[in-house]
Computed example of a mutant assay.
Amino acid sequence: MSYQQEPTTPFRWHYAEFDDSNFQIRGRTLFFIIVLFSVILVVALLFLYARWVCRSGHSSPAPAPAPQGLSLSTAQLAGAGGLDPATINSFPIVLHKLGSSGGADAECCICLGVFADGDKVKVLPQCNHRFHSDCVDKWLAAQPSCPLCRAELRADSLV
C-alpha cells in the first residue's frame, strides 16, 4: 500500500484575504439583538428606579402599632425619646474596683467591654445595673430605660 500525500498549501494569514461577508448581521439575528439589548436596558432602569425608591421612601417610617393588651398613655408617647441631660447626669458614677462585683456586672453590656480597675461606672438607680459612663450616657440620650432589664428611668417613675 502506498500512501499519497496531497499537495499542501502554505498557511497564509493576510488581512486582505479575510472574507467578512459571513459576519453580516441581518434579519432575524438583528431583531433578536435589538430585543435582548432592550430587555437589558429595561431591567437596568427598573433596578435603578427601585434603588431610588428604597432610599428616598424610608425617610419617615410609620410608627409601629402597639401590641394588643398594651396601651401607652399620652405622656409616655410624648416623651418616647431618651432622658434629658440633667437626669442622665444625676445618676451616680463610681470607680470600678476589681473584685467588688462579679458575674454579669463585670462587663458593660452595651460595648461588651470588661470593666478595668478604675473605670468610671454609672449605676442606674432602679435596678443597680452598671455600665461604662460614656456608653450608658449615649444609650440614655436615646432610650429612657435600662439597656439590660428595661427598667423605666424617667424622673416621674423613680419615685
Rank of each mutant, 00 (worst) to 15 (best):
M1P: 00
S2N: 11
S2P: 13
Q4F: 12
Q5L: 15
E6S: 08
E6T: 09
P7A: 05
T9F: 01
T9H: 06
W13V: 13
W13F: 10
H14I: 07
A16H: 11
E17L: 10
S21L: 01
S21F: 02
F23R: 02
Q24C: 05
I25Q: 01
G27F: 00
R28I: 07
T29Y: 01
F37I: 10
S38Q: 09
S38N: 10
I40K: 08
V43Y: 07
A44G: 06
F47I: 11
F47W: 12
L48K: 11
R51Q: 15
W52F: 12
V53F: 04
C54R: 13
G57N: 04
P63V: 05
A66F: 03
P67T: 05
G69L: 05
L70M: 12
L70C: 00
L70A: 02
S71F: 12
S71N: 08
L72N: 08
S73N: 08
A75Q: 14
Q76N: 12
L77F: 05
A78C: 00
A80C: 03
D84H: 06
I88Q: 04
N89D: 15
N89S: 15
S90R: 13
F91L: 01
F91T: 00
I93D: 01
L95G: 03
H96P: 01
K97A: 03
K97S: 05
G99Q: 04
S100F: 00
G102T: 14
G102P: 00
D105M: 10
A106T: 12
A106F: 06
A106Q: 11
A106P: 00
E107P: 00
C111G: 02
C111E: 01
L112Q: 04
G113L: 11
F115A: 02
A116P: 00
A116C: 09
D117I: 02
D119A: 14
D119H: 10
V121E: 06
K122N: 02
L124E: 04
P125K: 05
P125G: 07
Q126D: 01
H129Q: 09
C135L: 03
V136W: 02
V136R: 01
V136L: 03
D137Y: 09
D137I: 10
K138N: 06
K138A: 06
W139F: 11
A141G: 14
A141E: 11
A141K: 13
Q143K: 13
Q143S: 08
S145A: 15
S145M: 15
L148N: 14
C149L: 09
R150S: 09
R150T: 05
R150H: 14
A151N: 08
L153T: 02
L153K: 04
A155Y: 07
S157C: 14
V159D: 10
V159Q: 13
